[in-house]
Structures are given as structure tokens and as C-alpha cells.
Deep mutational scan, measured.
Amino acid sequence: NKFNKEQQWATYEILNLPNLNEEQRKAFIDSLKDDPSQSANLLAEAKKLNDAQA
């Protein structure tokens, strides 16, 4: 299913963002699990935070 693929991709991407700390990473991944339909939005937020902390 589409959300499952998006969720897996977003999880992979978030795990590989270098500037997030473990707590932030875990929070994003927990949110992905809670609502896979928000995968794209959550990934965008994670990338923004990652860039802000660069």
C-alpha cells in the first residue's frame, strides 16, 4: 500500500538526517507510526529541522 512505502521511505530518510538528535529522530518516527498518511509532511518537517541545526 502507498502509505506503507511512503512511511518506509520517510523513516529511512529521517534515520539518515545527520543533524537530528536521537530524541528528535525518535519523535518523528513515532509520529510516522501513529499516522503514516502524514509521512511526506513529517519528512519535510524533519528536513527543515535538520537544516536549521546544521
Rank of each mutant, 00 (worst) to 15 (best):
D34T: 11
S39Q: 03
A44P: 01
D35S: 13
N21W: 11
L15S: 13
L17I: 01
K47L: 13
N16E: 08
Q8A: 12
Q53M: 13
P36G: 10
E6K: 02
K47H: 08
L15N: 14
Q7N: 03
A27Q: 12
A44S: 14
N4I: 13
A27F: 06
L43I: 04
Q24K: 03
Q7S: 09
I29E: 03
A40W: 10
E13V: 08
I29D: 01
N19K: 03
A52E: 12
D35P: 01
A40P: 05
E22G: 10
A10S: 03
A52N: 06
N21S: 11
Q38T: 07
Y12W: 13
L17K: 00
Q8L: 09
K26D: 07
A52D: 05
D34N: 13
A27M: 10
L32I: 13
K2L: 04
R25W: 02
K26P: 00
N16W: 06
N16H: 14
I14M: 04
W9V: 14
N50F: 01
E13A: 08
L32H: 00
K2S: 15
Y12R: 05
K33G: 14
P36L: 04
K26Q: 12
N50E: 02
Y12V: 06
L32M: 08
S39I: 15
E22Y: 11
K48I: 11
K26N: 11
L43T: 04
K48L: 13
I14H: 01
P18G: 07
D30N: 10
K5H: 06
Q8F: 05
A46I: 01
D51L: 13
D30E: 13
Q53R: 07
P18I: 05
T11H: 15
I29L: 11
L49V: 10
T11A: 15
L43N: 01
Q8P: 01
Q8M: 12
D30P: 00
K5A: 10
K5P: 15
S31W: 10
L49W: 06
D30I: 08
R25M: 04
F28D: 00
K48S: 11
S31R: 13
A54L: 08
Y12H: 13
N41V: 09
L20W: 00
L49H: 03
K2E: 15
A40T: 10
A27W: 11
F3W: 03
E22P: 13
N50P: 01
F3K: 15
L15P: 01
W9K: 14
D30Y: 04
D51W: 11
D35L: 12
E45N: 11
A27Y: 14
L43R: 04
L42G: 02
K5T: 15
N41S: 12
E22T: 12
Q53A: 07
L20M: 02
P36R: 02
A27S: 11
E23S: 12
R25T: 07
R25Q: 09
N1T: 04
A54T: 13
N21F: 10
P18L: 04
S39T: 05
N16I: 07
E23I: 14
N19E: 04
I29Y: 03
L17E: 00
K48N: 07
A44F: 08
N16L: 09
D30S: 08
K48Y: 08
I29H: 03
E45I: 11
F28A: 02
F3G: 15
A54E: 12
N16S: 07
P36E: 03
L15A: 08
A46D: 00
P18Y: 05
L17T: 01
N1F: 00
Q7M: 14
K47M: 12
L20P: 00
A46N: 00
T11Q: 15
W9N: 06
P18N: 05
K47P: 00
L42R: 08
R25G: 02
D51A: 12
I29R: 02
K48A: 10
N21P: 03
S37A: 10
Q8D: 04
T11D: 03
Q7T: 08
E22S: 08
N16K: 08
D34S: 12
L15V: 06
L43K: 02
K26Y: 05
L15G: 08
E13I: 12
N1E: 14
L15Q: 13
Q7L: 15
E13L: 14
N21H: 11
L17Q: 03
E6A: 07
F3H: 15
Q8R: 07
A27P: 03
D30Q: 07
R25D: 00
K2N: 15
S39A: 11
Q8E: 13
E23R: 12
N19S: 09
N50L: 01
L20T: 00
S37V: 05
S39H: 14
L32A: 04
A52G: 07
R25S: 04
Q24T: 05
N4G: 15
L43W: 07
N41E: 09
Q24D: 04
E6S: 03
A40D: 06
I14S: 01
L42S: 04
E23H: 10
A54V: 07
A52Y: 09
N21L: 12
E23D: 13
L20K: 00
K5G: 13
A52P: 03
E6D: 13
T11E: 15
I29G: 02
N16D: 04
R25L: 05
E22L: 13
D34K: 08
S39E: 03
S39F: 15
S31I: 06
L32R: 00
W9A: 14
N1S: 02
F3R: 15
L32S: 02
N21I: 08
W9L: 15
L20R: 00
S37Q: 09
L32V: 09
S37N: 10
P36F: 05
L49F: 07
